[in-house]
Design a binder for these strands. Structure first.
Lengths: 221, 221
DNA sequence: ACCGGTTTGTTCTCGCGTTCACAAACTCAT
DNA sequence: ATGAGTTTGTGAACGCGAGAACAAACCGGT
């Protein structure tokens, strides 16, 4: 959202494409583990659950990594996507709010395997301090600034109750955290230049409920 | 995706709007709890974190529930949105896969408060059977069909490892489950008419990592 | 009854994303 | 070398959603 005029070679990739790149990455990893060394856009698209034309257009934003008449080299393409997303490097992450969800996040293996390293678990409740979760000690929320500075943390995860989420976000932003993944059921307000992504479990269910209701309307029992 | 020609009075609401309605609902609940009985589109939009024009356009798909020169009655609008989404009724839900994430989901209070009732927790691991999670007994996965039939479950939640997710989805669909919320890190294939929403924690982080990387490129240390 | 101020509902325009369709480019067999 | 077959990369058309802007409608005071 900040005006980055990009004197770099970095073409700006559409947001919708960025959101799909991790899916392609996972599909490629899956193919590689199955022993496949080359794949067509059709095959990869099927594995990723998208249209093959869309896949090709998405990949074209990164460059021309395929060979016409042949397809894509799985390992090569995988590396290129990983580099573009940034998962070839190490991303230190802080999780704030060690309730049920915080526990689950701390134990989630999908983070570490993609370069995300949980460097600290923080909670405001003194009763939790010292507790070991996923082999990491839960520490006071006030340690946030020191930890962010020491580990150069750029990404923060908020798994607190809705009431505390904005405060946590403010503190994170003040410390220099540039991206926040928010699981709390509230709308966060952050300054321009800070990225926020929201995951709201009950909203997802409500969207499904809407569609279920529509289906049920058409077919009276 | 199925051709529902909608002889009903139900206008078809754009998908983007459907995804925002739960946000408005939450904002309205918040306003109601704060004692506000009337609000303008500007105020509600601010609370929901969207543009006021977008909010008004979204609400116009439901009908004309506001009063020009005045605004919206908080309780009235809240009920209308809740009815449209379907959260005025009770939605029985089954959760399959009681690992760390399944635990968190079972305990998540945001479900019950919005009409979603967890009627069963299922897991393939016999070691887990009988265990009490959130006051509900974990049962064998094979009980799925009976439970879905008995409770008329329409929505299923998958929180298993990626390897088992497709099997679970197939079984759910076979039982008549029409909507699936998938937390497993895999692309589910389901027949037309079945809705699937995917929540992938590591993908969200990867998207943030991409943006962080871009920010870091512009400012060399 | 009328007028100024306010706020909704809607129309219009613009930009983004998706999809189609095809030319360019590569492989392999002859 | 040439041609048939295959697959990528991209130009163009299309549809959806976002945002601006405005007319219609309502309230309150005089």
């Amino acid at each position: 959202m900040t005006a980055r005029t990009s004197t770099e070679s970095s073409r700006d990739i559409p947001e919708a494409t960025v959101a799909r790149l991790p899916v392609y990455l996972r599909a490629l990893t899956s193919l590689a583990e199955a022993g496949t060394s080359t794949c067509s856009s059709e095959a990869l698209a099927a594995a990723a659950g998208v249209n093959s034309a869309k896949l090709r257009k998405d990949l074209s934003y990164l460059g021309s990594y395929g060979t016409r008449g042949v397809g894509y080299d799985v390992d090569y393409l995988r590396y290129q996507i990983a580099r573009e997303i940034g998962v070839t490097q190490d991303w230190p992450v802080v999780i704030v709010g060690i309730g049920n969800l915080g526990h689950a996040l701390a134990n989630y293996s999908g983070f570490r395997s993609r370069g995300f390293r949980v460097v600290a678990l923080l909670d405001a409740d003194p009763a939790r301090h010292g507790e070991l979760v996923a082999g990491i000690e839960v520490r006071p929320f006030d340690d946030l600034e020191r930890i962010v500075r020491e580990h150069a943390v750029a990404i923060g995860v908020i798994a607190t109750p809705a009431g505390s989420a904005q405060d946590v976000a403010d503190r994170m932003v003040a410390c220099g955290v540039g991206s926040i993944l928010n699981f709390a059921a509230t709308v966060l307000t952050v300054p321009a230049g800070v990225d926020v992504r929201k995951v709201d479990l009950s909203i997802e269910l409500q969207i499904l409920a809407y569609h279920e209701q529509r289906k049920a309307q058409g077919e009276p029992a």
